[in-house]
Design a binder for these strands. Structure first.
Lengths: 205, 205
DNA sequence: AATCAAAAATGAACATTGTTCAAAATAAAT
DNA sequence: ATTTATTTTGAACAATGTTCATTTTTGATT
């Protein structure tokens, strides 16, 4: 264990500390109301230090968005135990919805806020591995469904995208306050009711 | 025609001028890169004047979002000529997609950006009439479909919401750069391909 | 035509933001 | 003990939304 190693560890630790503080504030007061100064205050460091460890605010938002995908992975974990791809597909949607509803702010950051994508664009070579990985999980499940005879006449990739759009659309309408505007009979149930309609449909396919 | 009338007209005219300038800049450089000072410069008035005619930036964004709904209404106009509700439903989705793809920035403002909803919340009594109206058009069409025997076993409201979510989801993933991240075989076709999958499905219901 | 009051327009000033960077403080190496 | 490298700092800057006392313009009154 050299000193360089320890330093590297300390650097990582401080980076994590910044992210931890940022996440705490995000959940408390929302992404937009959280400033770099807030984050610095929260962890008792100066603004300057934050900029030593992160290129800019987008970099923080991007790292936090990655953490969000890890957390989504936790929700998806139990899907591996479901052997029937059709059952897995149905449950995957429920887990996605559940994650979105229990982690509004994180979901927003992962799938709606522009910053994480801007960061990826600005840092050249990198790709949106988090998104690619998550979509792959969906597409593979859909492919398995097709392989055992479901979704006759459909194509895996666009069908998967359609399904992603379906659940994401309901979640983002909710998170960005468009469901509150439209007065539903049962506002706090409409997401799951919508998903039920989807389930009825794919059960026939 | 009293002087008071003329003044009222002039007030309206200047309000429109501000909105027109704001929209021009939005389309040119995006919502987030447009400042009140930019808008004031664009129409050769001072910042202070803008604040005489609009309470704050959210108010401008809200009025512009309303204009967006009028424009969406234009896209929907030809739907009235379609008598068969099932055909109308299919075409409504296409028009919605078309509007979103041809008016990215306006769509974003109408269905993703928080500002318009914040404005409505802050101004008490008002409701999201634009959203209510648009959703009603969808739900009524779905109800007509049900009335002539389609969508057996489904409920109009949640099914309509699911359909809205489906198209909105694909549009917002595209607009907020999440489709560029995931490498599709045919990136610039994926929205319509996804919609095709949806069409195949509802044709069976 | 001159005067006054109301309405409209102004832009300097403020608070808050993200960001930078020379200087200070600390740690490591010699 | 001294020098060098690393880490941290916070004052300073530019940009933003917003306010409001002041100025300018307009309309009414005499």
């Amino acid at each position: 264990m050299s000193i360089a190693d320890r330093k590297a560890r300390e650097k990582e630790a401080l980076k994590s500390l910044i992210l931890k503080g940022a996440k705490k504030l995000f959940l408390e007061r929302g992404i937009e109301q959280t400033t770099i100064r807030n984050i610095a205050d929260e962890i008792d460091y100066s603004v300057g230090t934050v900029y030593v460890y992160f290129k800019d605010k987008n970099a923080i938002l991007h790292d936090l968005h990655s953490i969000g995908f890890q957390e989504l992975g936790g929700y998806f974990k139990e899907l591996f135990t479901v052997k029937d791809p059709m059952e897995r597909l149905k449950k995957m949607g429920i887990m996605y919805l559940k994650f979105a509803m229990e982690n509004n702010e994180m979901y927003d950051l992962m799938f709606i806020v522009k910053a994480p994508m801007e960061f990826i664009e600005s840092s050249e070579k990198e790709e949106w591995n988090e998104g690619i990985g998550t979509f792959s999980a969906l597409r593979k499940t859909v492919e398995e469904c097709i392989a055992i005879g479901h979704f006759k006449g459909h194509f895996a990739e666009p069908l998967s995208f359609m399904i992603w759009g379906l659940v994401h659309g309901m979640c983002s309408l909710e998170i960005r306050q468009r469901t509150k505007g439209v007065k539903f009979s049962n506002p706090d149930q409409i997401l799951y009711q919508g998903y039920q309609e989807y389930l009825k449909i794919i059960e026939k396919l």
